[in-house]
Design a protein around this nucleic acid. Structure first.
Lengths: 120, 120
DNA sequence: CGTCATATATCGGCAACCGAGCTATTGTCG
DNA sequence: CGACAATAGCTCGGTTGCCGATATATGACG
């Protein structure tokens, strides 16, 4: 699962939202890092509804325009929860690997050991 | 950044590896969840080298076949570290949202409050 | 001799995302 | 009154990254 899709599910986890509300929520949840494009949003919404991860909650007519609210399904919540686990595992694994990274070790040149070193 | 790319950088963080070694390492690091396909691996390797996130460490000839070892660059390590932060933030944000999820609240039907409830 | 593991690489196709554009209303600023 | 931003929805073409199949080659196992 990609980041935009993940954030759409995340936004819908707390309460049902309509398209534009999702865009606003994702900006908020990602601290401004992710701004969903229409193509991404509506494509993902159709796809997630097909997969049963989200459902249409209700449709409101506000000032002539239609507002379609989406809701996270139980399946969607379960998938999101496993995805959270996955991200945590990936992050911790990568952090561990980075700690083992062979870096420039300043004390190991041929000059090290001269002048009596640490145990002089 | 997608998961396969992230795991390739993760694998290379600890030590330089050749293509097939990366595949093995990623299986290990992901607890068998991710098995890189050749198309994914070599496509990503070329792309990451173009972006300067990895470098060719050395080339060894073992039994007539070439083994090309890749190494994580400083830029690659920095990108991976920011990506770790990102994943952690996304995971915690989603977990928080999931905790706020409106679920079926069993005590709130019209029958609640009858039979004296909790404080009887 | 066939098959599996090791090892590298290419190609076509697909799915998800991006960016631009379109429609429409309300409200603000000049 | 016109321009613009914000709210609200949607379509379409293009790019990117990943997948799966395929090709090549060696050594080991049965």
């Amino acid at each position: 699962m990609q980041e935009p899709t993940f954030l759409i599910l995340t936004a819908l986890a707390a309460q049902p939202l309509h398209g534009y509300g999702i865009v606003q929520s994702v900006i908020d949840l990602s601290a401004g890092e992710v701004k969903l494009r229409p193509g991404t949003l509506y494509g993902a919404l159709d796809r997630l509804a097909d997969q049963g991860l989200i459902d249409v909650d209700r449709e409101e007519a506000v000032e002539g325009r239609l507002r379609r609210y989406y809701r996270l399904s139980d399946d969607g919540a379960a998938i999101l929860a496993t995805e959270v686990d996955r991200l945590r595992k990936r992050a911790e694994t990568a952090a561990t690997q980075l700690r083992q990274r062979p870096g420039v070790v300043p004390g190991l040149s041929r000059l090290a050991g001269l002048h009596s070193g640490l145990n002089g």
